[in-house]
Design a binder for these strands. Structure first.
Lengths: 232, 232
DNA sequence: CAGTGGTCTAGACCACGGT
DNA sequence: CCGTGGTCTAGACCACTGT
């Protein structure tokens, strides 16, 4: 019988086991790639692949010459999926609805200007919309779009297609920022979301650029009870 | 002069450029690894590495025999860093402080029992603590620990070392869940965080297991103004 | 069945950064 | 300086899956 096949996943699993079992303590130097390859009976590239994955996951720290150490503070990384709301709702089994509340060209407030890095007070396209799940308010969306970066959006029938969906498909971004926070509902927002003024809303603010050209700033407000969950 | 050196990063960059420039449209089939390797003048493994990174990032969809396609919905993934609060505060330039508010053994509420998957009403260690930045309340922590999974924690001087820090260093977890949400502050929490009752708090609830054995459930409440930011 | 991605190998050279 | 990780190569075999 030949020896059990050694793949990078089995090396990954074994190293992970040694870390979790505290056989290799936090901060400890582990054997170098060549030695591990000899021990596991595989090529160095295979060990390299396994250790790279563990380093990406934050469990190992790797430096040339210094070697590979077990991370002192296993960085807890959580990967959030930020789906298009349309799909987020249908994934939960709801029926998606969309209502455009307002569409105008206006001067953005300071918060939006600074987030987008716009110095001049150029007017932006201001869109307000409500996403619905089974007819009930799901999220209120307050969006500012730079028309210079997305001239074609002006010709889109935003009553039928949400700006969200259209932008995702038509304007690739190269950089984006996401900020999560909480805030109490003001009277207007409460009415739109059909909750009480003062209720705690979950906010997700996204800013996106292509290169150094700002595309859009959007704040989605979720009514009480909304949860954003992820596995660690 | 030899041709410019081709590394997987340059292949990555060029493929990314073609996707963003819409040279390769969403849904389109792109050339296979062998052809791309020939085009770029490098080994197939180099192309493979580049395409794998892009697939991991959600920009490409790869299936054997079907080939590699540009993703229709570039999944917007956000990787959140969940640091130990101690470091989170010091990274912002603040001085960390910690105060234990309560420590008792008690029956957990239903929410905690179900999150941990505990059927029997075994008593858990209940810890309440306040994290401070420069003396000001930074986050209120409500934690329930399964003493059967972590007997050694009973001997730790929790006045000096936060349970958070101790657990991170001493109890590796194999599975965890993170839930982010918003809620209004009740009277007790408001007093602890020195904010007004009814203020919107940002909540982060974490549940962790080793194997199928529950370790701890913790809810950290952040006062108004707290933001969790990440790059996309 | 056959095309494509997924992986392994053995060897090589290079870049970084402790010593 | 020189050990260590980072990467590339050319070739090979395998696993999955659409046809």
């Amino acid at each position: 019988m030949p020896p059990a096949p050694v793949g990078w996943q089995s090396v990954h699993a074994e190293v992970l086991r040694r870390i979790r079992s505290r056989e290799w303590l936090p901060g400890a130097l582990i054997p170098n790639e060549t030695d591990l390859a000899a021990e596991f009976g595989c090529a160095r590239a295979t060990v390299s692949r396994a250790l790279r994955e563990l380093a990406d996951a934050g469990l190992l720290t790797r430096r040339r010459k210094a070697g590979t150490h077990v991370a002192l503070n296993p960085v807890r990384k959580a990967t959030l999926q930020i789906p298009v709301i349309h799909e987020e709702i249908e994934a939960r089994g709801g029926t998606y609805g969309y209502a455009l509340i307002g569409r105008e060209t206006a001067q953005p407030p300071l918060q939006v200007r600074s987030a987008l890095g716009l110095a001049a007070a150029d007017p932006l396209l201001h869109l307000r919309a409500l996403h619905l799940s089974d007819g009930a308010p799901y999220a209120y969306e307050d969006r500012w779009v730079n028309p210079q970066a997305v001239p074609a959006l002006l010709d889109v029938d935003l009553e039928r297609v949400s700006a969200n969906a259209w932008l995702v498909r038509n304007v690739p971004y190269t950089r984006g920022q996401l900020i999560l926070s909480a805030a109490t509902a003001d009277a207007d927002t409460a009415e739109i979301l059909r909750c009480a003024p003062g209720d705690a809303l979950f906010l997700a603010e996204r800013t996106t650029w292509t290169g150094d050209r700002p595309i859009t700033w959007v704040r989605q407000s979720y009514p009480p009870g909304h949860r954003l969950a992820t596995e660690l």
